[in-house]
Design a binder for these strands. Structure first.
Length: 847
DNA sequence: GCAAGGTC
């Protein structure tokens, strides 16, 4: 019987720290073993893994894609290998001296598997140390103490269910991915992948695009009238004016607003236009309650953050940081029911007295009863996302982090707030006509009790005004309008809508869905935001639909889920499930191998179509986007070397082909993706022709070589679309200054005394945009560089992000010295959302 | 270098 210390293993470091803290009563100390935190106290040690620390893969002899037929992967052996060497070796080291081991990974299927992986690593070094499993729904004193008092055994069936998933996913994913990549001869970084989750996700996007492409729009008309109360001059009482819409009852008696026949529409409009009054036909008032939202799970959090313009990736990355810093709970959760041990009053109390949340917290605490909302999903691994009650100082977070933190806090507030009450008012008025009366309707709504809207400003609480009227009342028609419209195709999925749909289809998990979307971007399957599928994506989905329908269908996940449950219950084994799945894949390959060539051709054609800009003006072949050996992009003729026609592209960014084409040349418009510097380059041939037509405008002597070689500075328009002031002796002299890409450049009479160059001015064709003085190009460039440095200087103070730096600059604080000299109260008065304490914190940090 | 699932 071993006497060594007890070793507790958790899924992540954060959980290890908190559990050690609870079990040790705060006395645990962190030590480092092989670079991994180990929390130690009394006779116990606690180590956190990093999720899976071992992974499944084929043996190395299967690594070369060309040497192995993809079909051989179906029955290839599968190994488990450490993927996190340092954690694995720390675990082995600690296990050698342990007298007892307790697995305390997350309470879900994947957690059970991670626990079993730890179990096997321990068993490698000690085959008889007792190993227990503890399960708890949240890391709180009560739950954790109770779980450790009543230890259980690992559930090997549950873990096997997870292993079956690993094997099925690897075999299908790897075999099909290699097959498609080989058939299209795409073996580098641009391989062509498919899998159980990315497949159906991609099909979702492609199917929507097919609907859009097949959509035929229809014409229809809508009629509106402005109505006003009162017998007096209606125009004197704008408060009483409201808009009403014409409607009718169609054949089956349902209400309709769209008029599909132009003749009928203009007939009705003639009557409406000539009418001076309408009589109130009916008034209906209803009171509706608007319940506060459920607590945040990952998907709903991403959705709310996306309405604040965060991408799914960005929102999760910020949430991760807030979690690691201790301000919010674990951000990857399906749970929408707060655990019993969350005391809303206690959590609200934590916000009392704070500048941003104090008043709202107090007003929520003021009520007799606090009853949090609940969603439909209740799980055992993590609570819904909520603030921990540990508050960040204003300087601890940058602007984006603060905005997301506030969202999480206010969502918690909303879930414990009261419902809102709306009053809906529907008015129907009739305009007399020779035939049947014309009907007009207006729907008003008024927020009577703001309820949760008072603390949660993210969901719409906009009102629409319709005045109090009574039946039979005469209203004045003050204006009418007749609008020709067209039915619109369905909209593309946005990222958060895609994630919601994946969730409802049961594909992916809370921790992976946003990564799957990123993967589709990385593979060249989707572009832009909202994502639009490439031709390659269409081809991959088409190939899968024909030969491997399962891998683009949600059915595969549903079946796997059922199989995993059978394994968990003990009704099936891992071997049963994986054997059956392999057999199915064998069948898929029978069809696929016969048509491999055709599939490959189609994929290659689509890849080319994604890069094709249009017809070569020289020879009529395709102009395609290519990459030079240095990595820069250009457009070249596909008939190269017979045709050597090329067109340059801007040096910044990655080209994206837009849907619009150039009216003059029929070439596709190009957009350059470069993060915040993204811009539309337009038609590459127009750009090149414009540059050829524009002569260089000499403005003075070159400061580098003017004296020695007589070089001159000229304004140049490059064929790649950029504009600069550069030396006429280029390439012998490469002196150059950047100029803005947009606007017309005017050389003024003003002269810079320092550099003896004319001052420049930028004007725009667009009348709404004001022209501005760029000045001497050398001075301008110098200022630009100083500005870059200045901006980043304020941002070097922790807690000041780009937006805050901008606000501070607006009140004259443009560098660190001026920030330090500033009077905190004065700054707080003038800068929105900043308090004097915050300014003092910045000043302290700036020292 | 393939998947999907953990975590960072």
């Amino acid at each position: 019987m071993s006497q060594g210390p007890e070793l507790i293993i958790t899924e992540k470091d954060n959980a290890a720290r908190r559990i050690a803290d609870i079990l040790s009563g705060g006395s645990a100390e962190a030590e480092r073993t092989r670079g991994v935190n180990v929390y130690t106290w009394g006779g116990r040690r606690c180590i956190g893994l990093s999720g899976h620390v071992v992974g499944v893969d084929f043996p190395p002899e299967y690594d070369d894609w060309r040497d192995v037929e993809p079909v051989e992967l179906i029955d290839a052996p599968i190994d488990k290998r450490p993927t996190q060497e340092n954690i694995v070796s720390a675990l082995r080291l600690l296990a050698r001296t342990a007298g007892r081991v307790v697995i305390a990974t997350d309470y879900d299927r994947e957690g059970e598997l991670i626990g079993k992986e730890a179990y096997e690593l321990v068993r490698e070094v000690d085959d008889d140390v007792p190993i227990d499993r503890v399960r708890f729904s949240s890391i709180t004193e009560r739950e954790v103490t109770e779980a450790f008092a009543t230890p259980d055994d690992l559930d090997f069936d549950l873990a096997a269910a997870g292993e079956a998933r690993q094997i099925v996913d690897l075999v299908w994913g790897a075999a099909l991915t290699r097959f498609l990549s080989l058939s299209a001869r795409q073996l580098g970084d641009d391989f062509i992948s498919v899998g159980r989750v990315q497949g159906p996700t991609l099909k979702l996007i492609v199917d929507r695009e097919r609907e859009i492409e097949a959509f035929d729009s229809e014409d229809y008309w809508e009629l509106f009238a402005d109505l006003a109360k009162g017998d007096s001059d209606a125009g004197d009482d704008p408060d009483g004016a409201f808009e009403a819409q014409y409607f009718y009852h169609d054949d089956d008696g349902t209400e309709a607003e769209r008029v599909w026949d132009e003749g009928a529409a203009s007939g009705a409009y003639e009557t409406l236009e000539t009418a001076s009054t309408a009589t109130v036909d009916s008034v209906r008032r209803r009171t509706r309650t608007d319940d506060p939202p459920a607590p945040f799970n990952t998907t709903q959090f991403i959705r709310a953050a996306s309405s604040l313009n965060y991408t799914a990736q960005r929102a999760m990355s910020i949430a991760e940081d807030l979690y690691t810093a201790g301000y919010i709970t674990y951000p990857r959760t399906d749970n929408t029911v707060y655990p019993d041990d969350l005391d809303p009053r206690e959590l609200l109390d934590a916000f009392v007295g704070t500048r941003q949340f104090g008043d709202d917290a107090e007003s929520l605490l003021d009520r007799e009863e606090i009853d949090p909302t609940e969603g439909d999903e209740e799980t055992t691994d993590h609570p819904p996302i909520h603030p921990t009650g540990e508050l960040p100082g204003a300087a601890d977070l940058d602007d984006d982090e603060w905005e997301v933190y506030e969202l999480v806090v206010r969502r918690f507030f909303a879930t414990v707030a009261d419902p809102a009450t709306w009053e809906h008012l529907r008015v129907v008025a009739a305009v007399a006509s020779e035939g049947e009366d014309l009907l007009l309707k207006a729907n008003g709504k008024r927020l009577v009790e703001p309820g949760y809207h008072a603390v949660y400003p993210y969901s719409s609480a906009s009102e629409s005004f319709v005045p109090d009227v009574r039946e039979g009342e005469e209203l004045t028609v003050t204006d009418t309008s007749f609008e020709a419209k067209q039915t619109q195709p369905p909209r593309r999925y946005g990222q958060s809508r895609l994630i919601e749909t994946m969730e409802s289809m049961g594909i992916g998990t809370k921790a992976t869905r946003h990564n799957v979307i990123q993967k589709l971007y990385d593979r060249g399957y989707i572009e832009s935001d909202p994502p639009r599928p490439t031709r390659l994506a269409h081809a991959v989905v088409e190939a899968a639909e024909e030969f491997a329908e399962r891998v683009v269908s949600e059915e595969m996940t549903a079946q796997l889920e059922a199989d995993m449950q059978a394994i968990t219950r003990g009704d099936a084994t891992l071997e049963d499930v994986t054997r059956e799945s392999r057999e199915m894949l064998e069948e898929v390959f029978e069809g696929l191998m016969e048509s491999g060539e055709a599939v490959g051709d189609h994929l290659r054609e689509s890849l080319k179509a994604d890069r094709t800009v249009g017809a070569c003006p020289e020879c009529g072949s395709d102009l395609v986007i290519r990459q030079s050996r240095q990595g820069s992009y250009f457009i070249g003729c596909d008939a190269y070397p017979e045709c050597t026609r090329t067109l340059p592209l801007p040096s910044t960014g990655k080209p994206l082909l837009l849907e619009e084409t150039c009216n003059d040349h029929g070439l596709t418009q190009v957009k350059m993706l470069a993060g915040r510097k993204t811009f539309v380059h337009g038609c590459p041939l127009c750009q090149a022709e414009a540059a050829d037509a524009q002569e260089d405008r000499v403005i003075g002597a070159c400061p580098d070589c003017g004296t020695d070689h007589g070089g001159e500075l000229a304004i140049k328009q490059l064929r790649s679309g950029s504009r600069l002031v550069g030396c006429t002796r280029y390439p012998d002299c490469d002196y150059s200054l950047p100029l803005p890409r947009r606007g017309d450049l005017e050389v003024t009479d003003g002269v810079c005394e320092e550099h003896d160059l004319p001052e420049l001015r930028i004007t725009y064709d667009d009348e709404d945009r004001e022209s501005w003085a760029l000045g001497c190009p050398i001075c301008n460039y110098r200022e630009y560089q100083a500005e870059q440095a200045g901006g980043s200087e304020l941002e070097s103070v922790s807690g000041i992000g780009e937006k805050t730096a901008e606000k501070l600059q607006n009140v004259g604080i443009d560098d660190v010295p001026s920030l330090k000299e500033a009077e905190p109260d004065a700054v707080a008065d003038r800068v929105d959302g900043v308090g004097p304490d915050t300014v003092r914190e910045w000043q302290a940090k700036a020292d």
